[in-house]
């Protein structure tokens, strides 16, 4: 198995940067790509032949937000049904409703509050 391919979807560049550092620190063999919104993520998925193994999705974003992205992602079909593809929510939302709503989605593997910590990354790795 090659490096774990990770896609970060967050409108905050600094958060993406920090999450990348943390991920690269814990997962030695990984490739991290960043996009700044839901639409950019959809474009990324349609233009890249290979699907990311892990998607970390923020919820509150301008333009297409995390919830809308989940809908479009499901419609897209690509990458969704393949095994060993996981989507996690990483959000600064503190609303219980958001958590309940989004974790009910079958595509969502886990829910973390920002910032991503080592234990979260271990949880992601445990899927493989």
């Amino acid at each position: 198995m090659g490096p774990i391919k990770i896609l970060l979807i967050d409108d905050d560049k600094v958060i993406n940067f920090l999450h990348r550092l943390k991920l690269e620190e814990v997962i030695v063999d990984c490739v991290v790509d960043e996009v700044l919104g839901g639409q950019a993520a959809l474009d990324y998925l349609t233009t890249h032949e290979e699907c990311p193994d892990v998607i970390l999705l923020d919820l509150n974003m301008p333009g297409m937000d995390g919830f809308e992205f989940l809908e479009e992602y499901e419609k897209l079909g690509k990458c969704v049904d393949k095994s060993k593809k996981f989507l996690f929510i990483v959000t600064s939302s503190q609303r219980d409703e958001d958590k309940i709503k989004v974790t009910a989605n079958r595509l969502v593997k886990g829910y973390f509050e920002k910032p991503l910590i080592v234990n979260n990354i271990k949880e992601i790795l445990a899927c493989f």
Partner: peptide, 12 residues
């Protein structure tokens, strides 16, 4: 929420 995000960024 909007305040939490930049705080996390600065702390990081």
């Amino acid at each position: 929420h909007d305040i939490k995000n930049p705080i996390i960024s600065i702390e990081g």
